[in-house]
Design a protein around this nucleic acid. Structure first.
Lengths: 162, 162
DNA sequence: CTAAGACCTCAAGTAAACTTGAGGTCAAGA
DNA sequence: TCTTGACCTCAAGTTTACTTGAGGTCTTAG
């Protein structure tokens, strides 16, 4: 198998190898390390050396990022793992479940927006007070204060009464 | 009707009124104007005055932004409209159709990612070479060059052969 | 041994989308 | 009239996620 070939190199990876294999730039690896997302040790000549597990970690980071999760959140999630341990299957299960929830939220939002957009195409309702786009986010989530009302046109908000 | 009340104020809006009614900060309005997203004229004392239509324009900007479309694209789309004209129903139809397409793409991506995440939860496949997350984006869209392969772990890419 | 290529650090730059601040003008009510 | 409060401009700061560059060290193949 090919495993022999890879193991014949070394058990630790240089930054260049990690970059090549993970597809992220070396500068990005430096950056991730400075942000505490990955870690490495140094060889006698002060060069970084990585455990192969770093590839999995980077993969996870990328997956999360791809779904729009900011690095800070990713770091927090990974931080929750004991020490600098590489995520196990169990960790992964938890993380992916959490991220899946975030993903679902995102998808729902976009879907609702699209559907509203859909129902507006060609109806000319944009100029009508009853347009669902009039205040979609308020409709969608009657949560807390959030951003203010956003009227499209027409009658004014009472805010502006004299 | 309430229209009387609103017209008793003025047909033109001050920056503060626009901010209050649209829910965006004054500084943001300045910014949007500097970026060519909205426009205004000045009164005798050099203060901005806006047509009420600006509210619709801002609403459109917000809708687009909410779906993740960058300001630059929004500006381009709005620029395509004759001069500083406020979008008509027809324009709106076109714009929303375009944005809807973008939205759909986004939704599709996230959905696929979520489903893959789903299929991975609890299967421990993350450590296996056959994991669909191994290289999801490559699976999903066999388009052009894009970013490099991103292996999760295990055997190496041939790139790194000696 | 030596030269090329891989690494290192640290500072600064980039892009997007705004916000903040300083310093000054304008308008409206008591 | 005077004093707030609303505006104005322009420059600089903020955040996120990196990239670029300068100047210097390590490693490795020939």
């Amino acid at each position: 198998m090919k495993k022999a070939a890879s193991q014949s190199i070394s058990v630790e990876l240089t930054v260049g190898e990690v970059a090549r294999r993970s597809g992220v730039a070396i500068s990005t690896l430096h950056y991730y390390e400075s942000e505490g997302l990955i870690s490495s040790w140094r060889n006698s000549g002060n060069q970084r050396r990585y455990a192969r597990e770093v590839l999995r970690r980077i993969a996870i980071i990328k997956v999360a990022q791809r779904s729009g999760i900011p690095l800070a959140s990713i770091r927090k999630a990974l931080e929750a793992l004991p020490d600098r341990r590489t995520p196990t299957t169990d960790d992964w299960r938890r993380l992916s479940a959490e991220w899946k929830a975030e993903l679902n939220q995102r998808i729902m939002h976009l879907t609702q927006l699209r559907d509203q957009l859909d129902s507006c195409i060609g109806c000319g309702c944009l100029s009508l007070g009853s347009c669902p786009l009039r205040n979609p986010w308020d409709e969608l989530s009657k949560l807390g204060p959030g951003p203010r009302l956003l009227l499209l046109e027409g009658e004014d908000q009472d805010l502006s009464q004299p």
